[in-house]
Design a protein around this nucleic acid. Structure first.
Lengths: 195, 195
DNA sequence: GGATGAACGTTGCATAGGCAACACATTGTA
DNA sequence: TACAATGTGTTGCCTATGCAACGTTCATCC
C-alpha cells in the first residue's frame, strides 16, 4: 500500500476523514457515497480506494481516532485501575456516546452497531492495558484478565448508553456513582494488583 | 509548467498562499524564507518552485487576489464611471490599505513598495476597464483614456494612503467627499462616455 | 422482463509532488 | 582570511494522485 509517512498521504487521509465527519453531520451513513466523500475531500474517487477498503473501514478509523482523542491523559498513562481512573473512563465513554448521537444522523442501524462494537472493543483494550501494567495478583493469568476487561468495558459502555434515555440523563454524577461501585466490586482483587 | 486546472495544483497553490498570508501576520516579509512557507504549507520546498519563481511572485499573486476580493461586485460589473462607482472604489482602496497595514508586519520597506505598485496598477486597470466599456467620447483614443485611468488610480490610492496618518482617519466619508469631486472634475467629459 | 442510471471497485497511464543531493550565494564568527 | 551555517534555486528519481474507462451490481421505471 501507500507509505503512511509520506506528507501527501497524511494530508489525503486527513481530507478524507474531515469530509466524512462533515458528511455524517448532515447525512446518514448509508446515504453517504464514496463519490460524496471524494468530492468533499477534493480528491479523486480512485484515491479513496488507495487508502480505505470501503466506507466501513473509514468509519472504523474515524471512530478509533475519535475515541483516542476522548480518552483523558490520566487514563492513557494510568498504572493501575483506581476509582479515579474508573470514573474518568465512565465519563469519557458517556461523553463520547452523547457527542456521537448529537453529531451524526442515525438513520442507519448498521452504523450504530458498528460504532457500538468498535467502542466497546477500544474500551476493553484500554482497560486490559491498565490491568496488565499493574503487578498481577496471584493466579491472574492473561486470559482471565482479558475477560475481566471485557466485562468491565461492556458494563461501562452499556450503562453509559442506557443513560441516554433516562430521566436524569444530565446527572452524570449519578451514573458514575452507580457504575463505579458495581465495576470495582466486580473486579474485586484484580483491581490494583495489590490484592 | 503545471496544469492550472489540476486539483492537486489548485490545492497546493491554496496551501502556499494561506501559509504565506499566515506568516506575514507574524513575520516580516524579508524574514520569511521559502523553507518557512513550504513547511507551513506542508509541501516540499521544490514544489514551491514549481508554482512560483520566488517569494516576490507569490506576494504579487496574493496581493492581486486580495485586491480582486476587495473590489465590490458593482464596481466589477460597472458599465460607466459614475459617482457611486467612484465612491466604492475609494472606500475599497482605503479598506484594503488599512487591512494590509493591520495584518502584515511591515519591517520591510521593499514589500510596502511592491504592494503599493501592484495595487496602483490594479486600480488603474480596473478604472481603465470601466472607461473602455462606456461609449467613448469624441476624440478619446485608447492611449489618452489609459492616462486618465492612471491618474485617477494614483489619486485615489495616494489619498487613501495619506488618510492613514490623518487625525480624522476614521471619517472615511470625509475622505470620499474630498476625493470624489477631485477625480470627477479632473475627468470632466470622459466620465460617462456621454460628454 | 428489459432498459436505464447510479454507485461500486479496479485498472493503466499521465502528471504533480516528495526527497535527496548539488552548486552557489550570503552571513556570521573565530 | 577562513570556516561553518543557512538560504536559494535546480535536478533526477520515485511515489501518490488525477483521470478516464471498464465491468459489475443494484434499484427504478417503462
Amino acid at each position: 500500500m501507500v507509505n503512511q509517512e509520506d506528507p501527501r498521504v497524511l494530508r489525503t487521509r486527513q481530507f478524507i476523514r474531515a469530509a466524512f465527519r462533515d458528511l455524517l453531520r448532515r447525512k446518514g451513513f448509508d446515504a453517504i457515497t464514496i463519490k460524496d466523500i471524494a468530492q468533499k475531500a477534493t480528491i479523486n474517487r480512485a484515491t479513496f480506494y488507495a487508502h480505505f477498503e470501503d466506507k466501513y473501514a473509514l468509519l472504523d478509523e474515524v471512530t478509533e481516532l475519535a475515541f483516542d482523542a476522548m480518552i483523558p491523559e490520566q487514563v492513557a498513562q494510568a498504572q493501575a485501575f483506581t476509582e479515579d481512573i474508573c470514573d474518568r473512563l465512565i465519563l469519557a465513554t458517556h461523553r463520547y456516546i452523547v457527542d456521537f448521537y448529537r453529531n451524526c444522523r442515525m438513520d442507519s442501524h448498521s452504523m450504530a452497531t458498528l460504532v457500538d462494537e468498535k467502542i466497546k472493543k477500544m474500551l476493553q483494550q484500554t482497560i486490559a492495558r491498565i490491568f496488565l501494567k499493574g503487578d498481577l495478583p496471584h493466579g491472574a493469568d492473561k486470559h482471565r484478565i482479558q475477560i475481566m476487561a471485557a466485562m468491565t468495558g461492556s458494563a461501562i459502555y452499556g450503562a453509559a448508553h442506557f443513560w441516554l434515555n433516562v430521566e436524569e440523563k444530565d446527572r452524570t454524577d449519578v451514573l458514575v456513582d452507580l457504575v463505579r461501585p458495581y465495576v470495582m466490586n466486580g473486579l474485586g482483587p484484580y483491581r490494583h494488583g495489590d490484592g
